[in-house]
Design a protein around this nucleic acid. Structure first.
Length: 589
DNA sequence: GTAGGGTTAG
């Protein structure tokens, strides 16, 4: 057997650059870590190879790929020549390693270098602005791209759509999208625009745009990006029938195995009152990652299936998946909504040591809420003080505690919590409403009326909380405190509510649905009100609406109907209670 | 040859 021939001489005194570059590319392509990139770099220097612009750019890109930004910067600063690729590579490196501001700053520096930025440079800079969600900075980059004649490029324009969307400037995003000539729009542009609507809770706009894409012969077939956005849009506006329809499209286009879409479907069904369908989609997943698990745990939590959520959580941990802050919040919510207070508290106390997650304000708020629901108000107060949260988060935390005090008729503590709420609340309407309700619950109707009248005098209005749900393709809208139900059946439904209250009392429900119904009265600014929405003492941040649809009664639960603005996305069914109401409905009929 | 755009859980 002959010795294999040595292909590369051990010591190459001088490689011609032309033959070296492919070798360099080959070496750098296999180098995913800093050590091997640095080793290749060292070999080159040792061999005394003259560095060319191209070889330096390759090295620069390799350093950026392993986020070795100080090495990259060092190399960049030493380069005798830099072209637009060198600048853009460094910019992209900063953006990818979570330093978008430095990336955008490079756009100014290019001016002084005499290098002309191109479409790639601009798309990179715009995308960095998107990460910052900074519309002001983004607009500046947009202007510069226009001047440079790069703003009409498909990729730059798509990045602009995304950037304006991430910065919450929907109109600007749409203007850029509309400004794109039909051939310039591709699947990515459509996907970006759909995502803008979906991510900004404009579900109906997303659905409308998707319909346009499907009917106008745009020549674009929905892909997994668009489908996940549209499903998520259906979830945000609780459009079950359209969501099911999109689910059909997902299956027809062979995207049934896509995890991102599946997560959106799990979420959509859970928000539309179909926990069973959520479960079906989840069970059909091959190897669910942390996000699907979190999604189904949150769904179970909303339906009061605490034990089920804990089982899923344990199964997930057994599979070696590491829970994150969102997962743990979901599990805590599950404990909270199922009265598993001590389990929830143990989780809060052990999450740092067991899972390496430091509790954040939302975990404390959840714990405070959990203690509050259970009537353990002193402990809830201690927890609230311990959390030491600020700003909007403090508002959420203390509002939750205030609601709990009101529910448990602890006016002494309600006053304290009410003070804290007013400290942090700029929009004080919600806080005052809760305070007024707290007085009313404690039987101090004069004080309650005084708060209301002071609100009227000061021109402070609280928009009535409302929520809606689709039953057999018909949307039903409910306003907080509205006592009118579907036409002539009002009396019958109120009677049903009373019966429900009795049944619930047998199950340990304390307090009265009826009294809350009266004290919660808001101005009803629409004539669509078809139900009553009252807070449940065992679930202080939830309201419950009872309405009629197609001759049967149902319970509709909306989270946080009184204080918060974001409850609109949380329309859900409370499964077990729904069953009882349906049974009651049969008795009443 | 080296640099660019869109998706899911709270």
């Amino acid at each position: 057997m002959t010795q294999p021939r040595q292909l590369i001489p051990m010591a190459a005194p001088s490689f011609p650059t032309a033959t070296l570059t492919p070798v360099l590319i080959h070496l750098l392509r296999g180098a995913s870590d800093l050590a091997s990139v640095a080793a290749t770099h060292a070999k080159l220097l040792k061999a005394g190879v003259a560095s060319t612009l191209a070889s330096s750019n390759h090295l620069l890109a390799a350093y950026c790929r392993c986020s070795a930004m100080s090495r990259a910067r060092d190399l960049f600063d030493r380069m005798p020549d830099r072209d637009v690729v060198s600048w853009t590579t460094l910019m992209s490196g900063y953006a990818a390693s979570g330093r978008p501001r430095e990336a955008v700053a490079l756009l100014r520096a290019i001016d002084f270098s005499g290098v002309q930025p191109n479409v790639v440079t601009f798309s990179t800079a715009v995308s960095a602005c998107a990460h910052l969600a900074d519309a002001g900075l983004g607009r500046q980059v947009h202007s510069r791209a226009k001047v440079a004649g790069c703003a009409c490029d498909t990729v730059v324009a798509t990045a602009l759509v995304d950037m304006y969307g991430k910065a919450g400037r929907i109109e600007d995003a749409r203007a850029v999208f509309d400004g794109m000539a039909a051939p310039a729009r591709n699947d990515v542009s459509w996907g970006a625009m759909l995502a803008v609507y979906a991510q900004n809770a404009l579900g109906n706009e997303a659905i409308e745009l998707f319909a346009e894409l499907r009917t106008n012969g745009s020549g674009v077939t929905p892909n997994h990006f668009m489908l996940s956005s549209v499903v998520s849009a259906c979830a945000s506006v609780v459009r079950l029938s359209i969501g099911k329809c999109v689910h059909g499209t997902v299956l027809r286009l062979w995207h049934g195995n896509n995890e991102v879409i599946a997560v959106a479907l799990v979420d959509m069904y859970s928000k539309c009152g179909c926990y069973k369908y959520s479960r079906k989609v989840f069970n059909g997943m091959e190897e669910p990652s942390i996000i699907p698990y979190t999604s189904i745990i949150v769904a179970a939590a909303k339906y009061g299936l605490g034990r089920c959520a804990l089982t899923l959580f344990n199964e997930m941990v057994d599979r070696g998946l590491q829970p994150n802050d969102v997962t743990l919040l979901g599990v805590m919510h599950a404990c909270s909504h199922s009265g598993l207070v001590d389990t929830g508290l143990r989780l809060l106390r052990s999450m740092k040591s067991k899972y390496g997650v430091t509790p954040c304000p939302s975990h404390y708020t959840c714990a405070v809420d959990m203690l509050g629901r259970a009537g353990r108000l002193e402990e809830a107060f201690e927890m609230a003080k311990e959390a030491q949260v600020e700003g909007n988060e403090a508002l959420l935390l203390w509002s939750s505690l205030l609601s709990a005090c009101r529910t448990h008729k602890r006016l002494d503590l309600a006053t304290l919590a009410g003070q804290r709420v007013s400290e942090f609340n700029q929009d004080i309407a919600g806080g005052l409403v809760v305070m007024s309700n707290a007085y009313a619950s404690a039987g101090q109707t004069d004080n309650a009326a005084a708060v209301r009248s002071s609100m009227r005098q000061r021109g402070i209005r609280k928009d009535p909380g409302c929520s809606w749900i689709e039953v057999k393709d018909i949307p039903y809208v409910f306003y907080a405190g509205a006592t009118s139900c579907a036409g002539a059946r009002t009396d019958e439904l109120l009677m049903l509510l009373d019966e429900l209250e009795c049944k619930m009392r047998e199950k340990g429900f304390k307090g009265r649905l009826g009294s809350a119904r009266v004290s919660d009265a808001h101005e009803d600014d629409g004539d669509e009100g078809r139900g009553v929405m009252v807070p449940l003492p065992w679930s202080t941040t939830m309201g419950i609406a009872l309405g009629a649809a197609k001759g049967h009664a149902f319970l509709h639960v909306a989270e946080k109907p009184v204080i918060y603005q974001d409850f609109k996305t949380s329309n859900i069914w409370l499964g077990d209670v729904t069953g009882r109401v349906k049974a009651l409905s049969n008795c009443t009929r």
